[in-house]
Amino acid sequence: MVEVAPAADLPGDPWASLRDATRARIGLRRTGDAQVLDDVLAFQHAHARARDAVHAALDGAALARAVAPHPSLQVRSLALDRPTYLRRPDLGRRPDLASLAALSQLAATTSPPDVAFVAGDGLSAVAVQRHAARLFHACLLRLHGWRVAPLVIATQARVALADEVGAALGASLVVVMIGERPGLSVADSLGVYLTWAPRAGRRDAERNCVSNIHEPDGLGIEAAADRIAWLMNAARRLQLTGVGLKDASPPLSGDGQRVRLSP
C-alpha cells in the first residue's frame, strides 16, 4: 500500500509527531510556492487509484463463485456503459428488461424470501469485489430463520435498483451492498442500504445505511455484519426502515449540509 501522508517518516520531518492526528496531507514541502514533485506524484497516484476504482468493471462470475454454494443471479441496469451510468443515475436505478424477466422467472419458482441481498458495483466495483462476498457470508451466519433469496449481482447499479429487484422477488426487505464514491485515501469503501417493502419510487429517507465498510481503517466486516443484522431484525419488528429506525442507526453524516447523493 502507498503512504497516505506523502511526507511521513522523512528524517527531520518537523510534522512527524503530528501526523498521527489526521490522515490529511499536512506539512507538505514547498519549492517556491509549489508542492515538491514527490508530493505531486503521490497525489496523482491516489487520484489514479480512485479513478481506476470508479471505472473498473465488476467480475460477476468471480463474485458468484465467491458466494457459492449460495445461489446467485446476474442482472444489469438500463445504463449500457460507464459514461452513461455516470451521466444518467436515473438509468442506473432501473433493471433492464432481460433482468426483470429473469427475476420474475426466479420468483415464479420459489416462495417469497424474507430478504434479498443485492451486490451492486455502484461507484467502486473494487469495493464490491473485495468485500461483498465476505460481508454476505458474515451476514448469513447471523440470519438464522431468515429465508434469503439468491444473491443478485448487479452491474451499472445505483442503490435504488435494488427496490425493483426486491419487488420482483417479493422480498419483505432488500439489502444492497454497493461501492461508495472513492476518495483519495480510500477507494474500496462499501456502503449498505436497507429498504423495507422495496418497490420503485422509495426515497432515501426510507432507507437505513451502514457506510464506510473497508479494512483496516474503516468499519470492519464483522462489525458491519453485526450492525446490518441488528437493523434487519429491527426492520422486521417495526415493519419499516428509514427515519423510523433513525435513533438506532449510526450517526448521520454531517455532510448532509452538502448535497451528496448515495451511489
Binding site: R25, R30, D33, Q35, D39, S185, R258, R260
Partner: peptide
Amino acid sequence: VPGADDVMLSYQSLSFHDMLTLRG
C-alpha cells in the same frame, strides 16, 4: 484544504500551496 485532499468529504479542492501561487 491540506494538499487539496479533503479526507472527510472525499473530494479534491485547492491546496494551501495554490493560494500562495495565486498570490504570487
